[in-house]
Design a protein around this nucleic acid. Sequence first.
DNA 1: GACTGAACTATACC
DNA 2: ACGGGTATAGTTCAGTC
Length: 817
Amino acid sequence: MKTTFIPIDFSYFDFEGKNFVKMVGRDNKGKRICVIDSCPVFLWAILSENIKTKEVRGLIEKVQKIEVKGKDRTTRVENVEIHDKKFLGREVQALKIFATNYKDLHDIADQLNLPGIEKRRGYDLGFVSHYIIEKEILPLKWVEVEGELLNNSLDFGGIDGVFEVDECIKAEKITSSKEIGFEPRILAYDIETDEFQIGEGEIVMVSLYGKNFKKVISWKKLANKEKPDYVDYVKDESELIEKFIEEVKKYSPDFLVGYFSDGFDLPYLKARADKNKIKLSIGLDGSQPRFSRGRELTGEIFGIVHVDLLKFIKTAYSQYMQSESLSLNEVSKEFLGDSKKEFEFVHSSKLDDKGLLNFFEYNLHDSSLAYRLFEKMWPDILEFSIVMQEPTFDVTRNGMSKNVESYLLHNLKRFNEIPEKRPVHEEISERMEREKYEGAFVFEPTPGLYEDVVFFDFTSYWPSIIVTFNLSKSTLLEGKEKDATEIDVSGKNFWFSKKPGFFSEMLKEIIEKRTQYKKELKQKEDVFKKARSNAFKLLANASYGYQGFFGARYYCPEASAATTAISRKIIKEIIDKINSQDYKVIYSDTDSIAFLKNKKTEKQVEELLEKLNSELPGIMKLELEGFFERGLWVSTRAGNVGAKKKYALIDSKGKIKIRGFETVRRDWCDLARELQSKVINLILKEGNEKKALEYFKEVIKKLKNREIKKEEIMITTQIKKPLNEYKSISPHVIAAQKMKDAGLPVTIGSLVEFYIAETREKKKLIREKVKLPDESGEYNLEYYLNNQILPAVENIFEVFGVKTKELIDGKKQMTLF
DNA sequence: GACTGAACTATACC
DNA sequence: ACGGGTATAGTTCAGTC
């Protein structure tokens, strides 16, 4: 039979010692299909450079006889071929060694520790990735499948008999198909429980939200009020879990979506199913979710892609987001303009009818938010899967370095390259201990309020350096060669080949594709194209970090150090050139330069830009970031030098851009942040400090009169490690400990909120004055004056010669008097 | 007990 | 374990007098 098919979920199984991929997806009529396929399994043995033909023949004969006896199967070498390949850009001869089972390749490799074989590679990709590379079948890309319809046949020991799909096909031929669009079936879910610890308390209710579908399943019932339509009552928790499974099966989603569901909802469901002695048989073959043993839990369901949106948001969006936390509430506000429903948690036994009704709504709304977030992010999720060529389950969980690596591995074929291996544990520890290399250049500004500021910045600065100078593991030379680029890295020299390597070639393609899509987007908007452009942008940006990351296959700190060395050299040259053209550079950080326009016209500035660009090497390019009417730089708190990474700008439309100031830091209280923001605004708009100073005096007065609302003085700080590992017990650790004592969950990543209160006795340390938001108390006047609002504006007013400290002290004495 | 610099910690910038 | 280094700034800690 023949069908058009889109693969969504990827997994594999063994039958008679061989590996088979099972792909679950849809056909063009929306029917749910499972396609079973296989591919040759092999690894590479790279031969020594000087090996003789005769020796190769002997080696092949020896390798052909290798057999590995395992507990439940025997794997043997089935065939050996010799190929001309490349490894790290070097031409090599390599044996392609075919074997029975992918998981046994490691054992085969152990037997290949033979003279004449230099390296063994290509057996640590995972069978699914190996399959995708070999058969060139991409996740979420339509294909034409020809094969045998398995209809409860005995093939594969009757494995398809238990698959809850419309058709199961054993593939004979798979070819690519034209794109016909795909609308995924999405189901979001969320549970509410009596305890925060996994499995500790009962699951009170679970909500489901899909297309024209909403449901809350609960064993807790309203006593007197009528139940809403979307609520289904069940007898107890055990029935709740069974009903949940039933509803998921009935809805038949491609994607089951949660928020922090890898870490909470799914493991909680599993734990409670275990406790109730029932099976959480949610997989399409009746299997239970499988949880990885890694540092962080991940829950995988056969046939349904379980997506934890929190993880994807962390890697794909967080660096560009305004939200100060990644809570469902904040993220929903930013992406959907909607927030969670208000609800104060109480134990289910203490819920009255009104509370329970709210709880139903709250629970359903959370699922609705997750559903809509998925819809919003679907173009990015889809394009990430297609660009990285990895299953959606993985790309939604991997970090950017893993994504860079996926892209590399899936494109090596075009370069005839054998993949490098993953670093082993010892290598990783060694790499982690390496000395840091010197990074970017930051210009020390002179504090002041400047008029007419121009900003230039480089487009994809570091990636463009890597490409232009060919900086990578495969192009790093051992010593000086004739056709090499010599790079002085803080007094030490490195040489890189001028012949382009696959890393910089691929990165060049990534940058070019990004530029091309961006150009096309200007002509016509398209959410999917935008998502693809974004995926390439993120890949390019992560490529520099990748080479310096200890877990990378293509780890190359020399390339990273060379990249930053070149970046420092070039930006300093540009600064000199701009200064020599009768402009004055006032600031620079990594890839951006700010300078005074000096009464010149915008056209003259653009000509300057053009000239600078004509002198830049390779694909490097400088861009005009913008013209600004005013810019403010301040000094550091400690000394009288200009502070780096702290400035504020205003453009001709009155739009203000603030960098680094306390205003943009979440670990300062709102009072200080809003005061500072207002002061910066007034100064930039007015061009002087007068109105700002008046405003500051008002705030001091209000604070002293205790007219400030409590929520404005709350300080929020993140817990970054287990509480007992803190060497220095700072206020936020005390706050966290207090929360823990009150039975609230505090884990790594938790944000704790507290304020500094007045104390009866005189206490020396700030941490002794910490109180949680719901603890009664007066805010500590001295602390908020001297440690919050004064530091927030002191350096700003200092630019104008105003001594704010005297302002606070003077007033204080007066009020005391 | 006051003072001081180093260490620790969180968060921003690019 | 799940990109990198540069930088500011607060609070505690440990040493001195």
